[in-house]
Design a protein around this nucleic acid. Structure first.
Lengths: 252, 252
DNA sequence: GTTCGACTTTAACAAATGTCTATCTTCGTG
DNA sequence: CACGAAGATAGACATTTGTTAAAGTCGAAC
């Protein structure tokens, strides 16, 4: 990974609520990061049930939230740079899932004492952090919908469309492609199918010209077609300006 | 519905975070409710995309969060008495889903101005409200897991086990049964199956003696067996005392 | 460059689930 | 008490997905 791309590691921090932050708050947020760490192979940063005293900010790469049950691993969420991955670990005594890196991943760690400090002194920033967790919940709901509504094709299309848009929000997507270090097994874990069926699905979508994977990237020649397959509607991602933060609720 | 059962409608309010509230905060919460309303038939209290200026507290009955797409309705969450159903509607300009009543339902409405007031003056209570939304997210993750991991039998078993436990938390479940006003169509919407397959599933589980529906209730003769079918683990519900609230984070 | 392991690909068959059509039951309403 | 609408039940068949077994590909480490 080219660390020189990150002169200030905080550049993307807090992705979709960042636009509502004041300059001072952006600096505060960056100061919350005590240290950074680079993982070059899949690593469980946090294990389910473990007590935690710091939260994780994803700076580059991908992180999955996964739960292993019945010997099989299931992915219940995927994070992109700028996401405060386990801010909720601050409130819940223990996490209900593992936090695992995917491919090469750069993360920052934020001690909980600093979050406590912010909660004591920064009501506006605290609110932004809360709202960021509400967007996570909205993404969860869309995943539930995806799993209830779509078959394997649609689920894969939806996942790719979502990740492309979320990367695009932080300036890390190209018009017809984006980074995609997930393996087929991981894609199947995130789509609730077997790896073999995921392979079938990928093949047929590749043959149909909808999507193609190569060298850690996904190519999407026709985004509109992909989104149609996924019944995709970006509104649940609450892009810039789609929150009340900074407006009526900008309390003080 | 027997309203005399609710001498103080606030009795259950804020279900799983209630134990961390101070008496004064419980009163404050109850004061946040401006008015109550009883719905005797399925009603969409809120429609997706609609601007909202109040949030909904569920006092009795059930409420579903649903999204209609492709002409088919999907349920992405179910609420039980004590839940602050759409607190997140306060932060998000618009909801990404509908809020619909199930069976007979008594709700309280809380104007957003009162939430703003609380956020200005009650940091501890604000934190509790935040944490309540984090539990919602944990439930969402478990639904994702359920949909990825389980077949129709397991999904139904999981839903029944979850609702029984959540009702039990607020003292509204019997040892081997609880209220269950959801129709088979609604159950299928919540489990991501067709109504016909849900009927097949219910029949086979009834014949197996695992579960039975009658007159708006569900009978669960052997909870352990149901939970085994569902690979159920209550920890994601964060029962009493399972949050950091009121302890290290009791800031002031 | 070889070797090993992880990842990907394929085929054949079994099981689960969806679709279509229809009938039966229940319950509120007049 | 009759009626109608919503809900529940049922069977036959199509489609999707899971399972098992195997082989091919690629890249990192020695």
């Amino acid at each position: 990974m080219d660390l020189t791309r990150y002169p200030k590691t905080g550049r993307f921090m807090a992705g979709r609520v960042r636009h509502a932050m004041r300059t001072r708050e952006k600096d505060l947020l960056e100061d919350m990061i005590e240290k950074t760490e680079l993982y070059t192979s899949p690593t469980a940063i946090l294990k389910r049930g473990q007590m935690v005293n710091q939260s994780t900010m994803l700076i580059d790469g991908f992180i999955a939230r996964s739960i292993t049950r019945g010997g099989k691993r299931h992915i219940v969420g995927i994070h992109v740079p700028g996401d405060f991955v386990d801010l909720h670990g601050f409130a819940l005594k223990r996490l209900d899932h593992d936090i695992v890196t995917v491919g090469h991943t750069l993360v920052g760690f934020c001690p909980h004492e600093r979050i406590v400090e912010v909660m004591k002194t920064e009501p506006h920033l605290t609110r932004l952090l809360w709202f960021a967790t509400l967007i996570d919940a909205a993404v969860h709901r869309e995943w539930i919908l995806k799993l209830e509504q779509l078959n394997a094709d649609g689920r894969l299309a939806h996942l790719m469309a979502e990740l492309w848009h979320r990367l695009n929000f932080v300036g890390m997507a190209e018009p017809q492609s984006c980074a995609m270090p997930l393996t087929q097994v991981e894609l199947s874990d995130a789509c609730g199918t077997t790896a073999i069926h995921m392979n079938r699905t990928i093949r047929s979508m590749r043959e149909a010209g909808v999507i193609d994977f190569a060298r850690g990237r996904v190519m999407i020649p026709d985004m509109a077609r992909l989104e149609a397959l996924a019944h995709f509607d970006t509104s649940y991602l609450y892009g810039d300006g789609d929150l009340f933060i900074g407006h009526a609720l900008d309390l003080k």
